[in-house]
């Protein structure tokens, strides 16, 4: 298991009159080398959960195991910096982390902090920028002058350059145009398939979740309402109704086809897969 939560709770402003319990007795195993999606309504505790993954928040109660690190509530936890090199966290609106004078310097900032030499950091920065599709001609431009979508790419490259084993993304495609969003998601899928990264992705877009996530964690009111294969979640009508989940467009299309008498397997989760099955039937 890459990440294990053991009866973990988190309370904001503990001991104050406006204390708020954001996570309530979470028990959760996130598997290695898989794409896990975290979904749930606003305020259900998704972001709080994610900020535990690289120890930005420390649990109020319970414990958390991440790779070889163990984090226990109310204890002095060491080696957090090493943990942060292994779990890369891309925040919602990651573009706000950009500050260096050039794009390349910004992408190399993370590796440099984690102890790589100047040249090696630059090398890693270049590699990461290449992955997110920022051309070499732009390396010397200021990251603050870019368009929103490009800023987001550079920010994500800043985390990829650290080359973490686990990549955690909080709403990475929010505010991107459909094409840019698709390219981003493709990149994460490739990182998972080719480079065997464990990917955890928080998303509001159930189509992305349905199309790509191996497993899904559904959060509701600070608790885990469902954790298991994504395909099973979207077949479970009771869960969907109880949690006001929007059905993925692909799923709606698939259901309409099945109603018309087409036989389509449960595993067909993307438009391409569905089309292939339909074509096979017609032939």
């Amino acid at each position: 298991m890459a990440i294990t939560f053991k009866s973990l709770s988190y309370i904001y402003d503990e001991g104050m009159p406006y204390a708020h319990k954001a996570l309530d007795d979470i028990n959760l195993n996130i598997s290695e080398n898989k794409i896990t999606a975290i979904i749930g309504e606003t305020g259900s505790g998704k972001s709080t959960l994610v900020e535990h993954l690289n120890a930005l928040l420390l649990p109020s109660a319970g414990s958390l195991e991440i790779l070889d690190h163990v984090i226990v509530a109310k204890e002095k936890n060491k080696g957090l910096k090493k943990l942060r090199a292994e779990v890369g966290l891309v925040f919602q609106f990651a573009e706000y982390q950009l500050f260096e004078e050039s794009i390349l310097k910004d992408a190399a900032f993370g590796p440099k902090n984690f102890g790589f030499s100047e040249e090696e950091a630059i090398e890693r920065g270049k590699k990461a920028l290449n992955m997110v599709g920022i051309p070499e001609s732009m390396y010397q431009r200021s990251p603050l002058d870019l368009s929103g979508g490009q800023k987001r790419r550079v920010a994500i490259a800043g985390i990829l350059a650290i080359d973490p084993k686990i990549l955690v993304l909080d709403e990475p495609t929010a505010g991107l145009d459909p094409k840019g969003a698709k390219e981003m998601i493709d990149l994460f899928v490739e990182l998972n398939h080719k480079h065997h990264k464990t990917v955890v992705i928080v998303s509001h877009d159930n189509d992305v979740v349905y199309n790509y996530a191996d497993e899904t964690v559904l959060m509701s009111g600070g608790k885990v309402a469902y954790h298991g294969p994504t395909l099973d979640l979207f077949e479970d009508e009771k869960l969907i109704n109880d949690n006001n989940l929007l059905l993925p467009q692909t799923m709606v299309f698939k259901k309409a086809l099945i109603e018309k008498g087409f036989k389509i397997s449960k595993e067909a989760r993307t438009m391409d897969m569905i089309v292939n099955e339909v074509v096979r039937v017609i032939k």
Binding site: L56, A85, F91, N113
Partner: peptide, 8 residues
């Protein structure tokens, strides 16, 4: 938090 994640 973002910068801490980048090792600051």
């Amino acid at each position: 938090n973002s910068q801490k994640s980048r090792g600051v």
